[in-house]
């Protein structure tokens, strides 16, 4: 069973996850601006920048994160940002929530000058997340687990990160067993998505280069978190 402490931990994570969503006026823009590749690229970079701000606010609410070494906090955010953003986008796109304008978002992503060889694995990932029909608690915990991955580049005290990630994995494992008694493999499937995310991380670096080639500019916050010069 999930212990009292684990219930408190889960509640904090889910509340933070729900509190930090992309601002509605930003999402509405998806419907308003015209559909040129240029405009789509600008909108997507604006949304990605907002997603990074939301990600940092969510991360600050993960119990124990702010007590980590400051440099390690930055290393974890830089190392996990792309994966956490793909996970969040997959959850938004598969939620088909009316106020997220998912069709408009998908349309703009497809017509934003992104290279085809990157588009395919990305939408395959979105589909694979959609098929899991994840509960909000699972989404929030999986995002926190992604951020607290100890073996990111430049993390000095990996044990301290492991000590934060372990309890999240334990709660998620129990939650999956309780919520999906007919699918004993469900927890393993969730962790399998984290492996897929690492592959996407690699594609992402290449995608940025292809966009760079067409002289597309990213915002200062995206340049910092994606290490783009």
């Amino acid at each position: 069973a999930i212990t009292k402490d684990q219930q408190v931990l889960m509640k904090v994570i889910v509340e933070a996850y729900n509190r930090h969503q992309i601002p509605q006026d930003m999402a509405k823009k998806l419907l308003q601006e015209q559909y040129s590749a240029e405009e789509n690229f600008l909108l997507l970079t604006e949304m990605a920048t907002s997603q990074v701000q939301v990600l940092v606010e969510f991360t600050k609410n993960i119990p124990g994160f702010l007590s980590l070494d400051h440099e390690d906090q930055i290393a974890l955010l830089k190392g996990s940002a792309v994966e956490a953003m793909f996970l969040r986008s997959a959850q938004v796109l598969s939620s088909k929530k009316p106020n997220c304008h998912t069709d408009a978002l998908e349309e703009r992503i497809r017509k934003s000058g992104m290279s085809e060889e990157f588009m395919t694995p990305m939408f395959n990932f979105y589909k694979s997340i959609g098929k899991l029909h994840m509960m909000q608690e699972e989404q929030a915990l999986l995002t926190a687990i992604t951020i607290l991955t100890p073996d990111r580049p430049y993390v000095k005290d990996q044990q301290a990160v492991e000590r934060l990630q372990e309890p999240m994995l334990d709660v998620l494992r129990k939650l999956c067993a309780l919520q999906h008694p007919q699918e004993p493999q469900y927890f393993a499937h969730l962790l399998g998505r984290l492996t897929e995310l690492r592959t996407l991380n690699h594609y992402h670096a290449e995608m940025l280069t292809s966009w760079r080639v067409n002289d597309h500019k990213f915002t200062p916050l995206l340049c910092e978190i994606w290490d783009v010069q």
């Binding site: 509190r19 701000q53 940092v56 606010e57 600050k60 609410n61 702010l66 400051h70 906090q73 930055i74 955010l77 830089k78 200062p220 916050l221 910092e224 978190i225």
Partner: peptide, 16 residues
Amino acid sequence: EEPSLLKKLLLAPANS
């Protein structure tokens, strides 16, 4: 060196 935007966001009070 450019001040880190990430550091600024991290140091801002939570839920700002």
